[in-house]
């Protein structure tokens, strides 16, 4: 199948749920594009609308308004979902199936030929670390094991587009790293990956580009590099045995913050930074390190969300709480 450069195109997507006469706006005119081969992260607090967006992208739910194209066609068409992997949040495999039988069932439903399944199922179960438990019933699996089985199921069809909704939910740190490695490996094969998560550090490590969804609106998007671009803040470390009191620098007009034992100094521009170096050298201080401080994605996220909540245009909290749509996260 020829994959267009824009794998996912969302235009003014709106989703409204009605529940006993109450209306709930889960998505509000969302515009989004995901490009071929990209690892895209959708961020948002619980209830921001992330799962609803993913469900619409997979044809599980219908949009109220707007257009959604996945690889150039509607996700409601069964053919569109060929070679798309999906790991749903809180998925539940039929407990009566073994790990092996689960993959065979969903592989057959995906139209994977029987011979390919014979080879691929043991390979995938080994990859996710379930090789020895393949004949156990899924009902006996731990949450982390179920999550890994879900990942194997999502990879079954050798997908060129992979949707992962909270992929590391319930997985221990070792398992999380394992999942991350598998995703990076998958990406090397050219698979476009759409990750839906509120684990920001995971997203920061894995994604090329992210979007932040807040109360159904897309409030920021860009590359991880851009969003976490170096600020005007620099970390300064003097050689061992040398110190510089922050108060003294502050007296000289520098904006200084102490962070984890380091001095972080905010400067207007590089000229100002060099003046500071001159000043320190004039005092015969030996500088061991000067490095720009990058903003963590978590800081960006919190700043954006808090900014939205305090902005006059933001939705009233009460209008969006209390009612949930079919998706746990909306």
């Amino acid at each position: 199948m020829d994959i267009p450069p824009t794998v996912i195109a969302v235009r003014r997507l709106t989703k409204e749920f009605r529940h006993w006469g109450r209306r709930l706006l889960a998505l509000d005119r969302v515009d989004l594009e995901v490009h071929r081969g990209e690892v895209f992260g959708l961020l948002g607090a619980n209830g921001a609308g992330k799962t609803t967006l993913v469900k619409i992208l997979l044809g599980l739910a219908r949009p109220t308004a707007g257009d959604v194209l996945v690889r150039g066609s509607s996700p409601r068409r069964p053919g569109t979902r060929r070679r798309i992997g999906y790991l749903p949040e809180g998925h539940r495999f039929p407990g009566y199936l073994t790990g092996d039988a689960s993959l065979r069932l969903f592989g057959r439903l995906a139209g994977v030929p029987e011979k390919a399944l014979d080879a691929r199922i043991p390979e995938l179960l080994e990859l996710v670390g379930l090789g020895e438990r393949r004949r156990d019933r899924v009902g006996r699996y731990s949450k982390g094991m179920t999550q890994r089985l879900g990942l194997a199921c999502a990879l079954l069809d050798e997908p060129d587009l992979l949707f992962l909704d909270e992929p590391t939910d319930g997985v221990d740190p070792v398992g999380r790293r394992h999942i991350r490695d598998i995703l990076l490996q998958t990406r090397e094969h050219g698979t476009t990956i759409f990750i839906n998560s509120h684990l920001l550090s995971e997203v920061e490590r894995t994604c090329d580009r992210v979007a932040i969804l807040h109360e159904g609106r897309l409030v920021r998007q860009g590359t991880v590099q851009d969003l976490t671009a170096p600020s005007r803040r620099f970390r300064l470390r003097l050689a061992d045995g040398q110190s510089m009191l922050p108060e003294r620098l502050a007296e000289d007009g520098w904006r200084v913050v102490t962070n984890n034992g380091h001095l972080e100094i905010e400067v207007a521009d590089l000229e100002a930074l060099n003046r500071l170096v001159d000043r320190l050298r004039a005092d015969r201080r030996l500088i061991a390190e000067i490095s720009p401080v990058r903003t963590a994605l978590e800081d960006v996220f919190i700043e954006v969300v808090e900014g939205e909540e305090h902005s006059p245009g933001s939705l009233e909290n009460g209008s969006r709480t209390g009612v949930h749509g079919p998706g746990g996260d909306r």
Binding site: G59, P78, T80, I84, P88, R92, F106, L109, G111
Partner: peptide, 22 residues
């Protein structure tokens, strides 16, 4: 009802198979 369990139906319906067929 078992097919429509939350978390289970997602696995079935997102396969490349029509809902009528399913």
């Amino acid at each position: 009802p078992n097919l429509q369990h939350r978390g289970t139906v997602d696995l079935y319906v997102t396969r490349p198979i029509g809902r009528t067929h399913l």
